Computed example of a mutant assay.
Amino acid sequence: METYNAEARSHVESRSDGDVRVVVMAGEFDIDNVTDLRIALDPAASGVTRFVLDVAAVTFVDSAALGIMLQPALDRPVVLAGAVPRRLARLLELTGADMVFATAPSVAEGTVMVVPPRQG
């Protein structure tokens, strides 16, 4: 498991589960502290067929962080796992990004669930 904690306001952990990268996000993510998130969600990561983001402990996401969350979704599934916090759910709804992400009740389910291809 890789742990990133350069910013006190946010915490990112990532680990591989086969060809799935699980990324645990906690705290506030904005333009000033997205470096760790960018590393964990590298859209050029080889051998990764899916990203599962545990977002249950996220308290804030700005447009810069949302853009980073969306990058890997251009060519592979990104699943939001756990209860999506109300503020994040509202941002996803307002931007239409809720149509991009699949959702799962848990990380375990997010790693194995069938994700239908996006219509686009």
Results as ranks from 00 to 15, higher is better:
A40I: 02
A40N: 13
A40W: 05
D42F: 06
D42K: 00
D42I: 00
D42S: 09
P43T: 03
P43V: 04
P43Q: 00
P43K: 04
A44Q: 11
A44L: 13
A44T: 10
A45W: 00
A45Q: 05
A45C: 05
A45G: 13
A45R: 03
A45S: 15
A45F: 00
S46R: 15
S46N: 14
S46T: 12
S46Y: 13
S46G: 14
S46M: 15
G47T: 04
G47K: 00
G47F: 01
G47V: 02
V48P: 15
V48R: 00
V48T: 03
T49R: 15
T49S: 15
T49A: 15
T49M: 14
R50E: 05
R50W: 01
R50M: 07
R50V: 02
F51Q: 01
V52W: 02
V52H: 08
V52F: 01
V52N: 06
L53F: 13
L53D: 06
L53R: 07
L53C: 15
L53T: 10
L53Q: 10
L53A: 15
D54A: 11
V55G: 00
V55W: 07
A56C: 09
A56T: 10
A57C: 09
A57V: 04
V58F: 05
T59N: 10
T59P: 09
T59Q: 13
T59D: 14
T59R: 12
T59C: 06
F60V: 04
F60D: 11
V61D: 08
V61H: 09
D62Y: 14
D62T: 12
D62E: 12
S63Y: 13
S63H: 13
A64T: 15
A64E: 11
A64Y: 09
A64M: 13
A64S: 15
A64F: 10
A64C: 12
A65L: 12
A65M: 12
A65G: 03
A65F: 08
A65Q: 07
L66C: 04
L66M: 15
L66E: 10
L66G: 02
G67N: 12
G67H: 13
G67P: 03
G67L: 08
G67I: 05
G67S: 10
I68W: 11
I68A: 14
M69D: 05
M69K: 11
L70S: 05
L70K: 11
Q71S: 15
Q71G: 13
Q71L: 15
P72N: 02
P72L: 10
P72I: 00
P72A: 13
A73R: 06
A73D: 11
A73K: 07
A73P: 11
D75Q: 08
D75M: 04
R76N: 07
R76L: 02
R76E: 06
R76P: 11
P77Q: 01
P77H: 04
V78H: 00
V79T: 02
V79E: 03
V79K: 02
V79W: 06
V79D: 02
V79Q: 03
L80P: 00
L80S: 08
L80M: 11
L80K: 13
L80H: 01
A81L: 04
A81E: 01
G82Q: 00
A83R: 14
V84R: 08
V84D: 02
V84S: 06
V84N: 08
V84Q: 06
V84C: 09
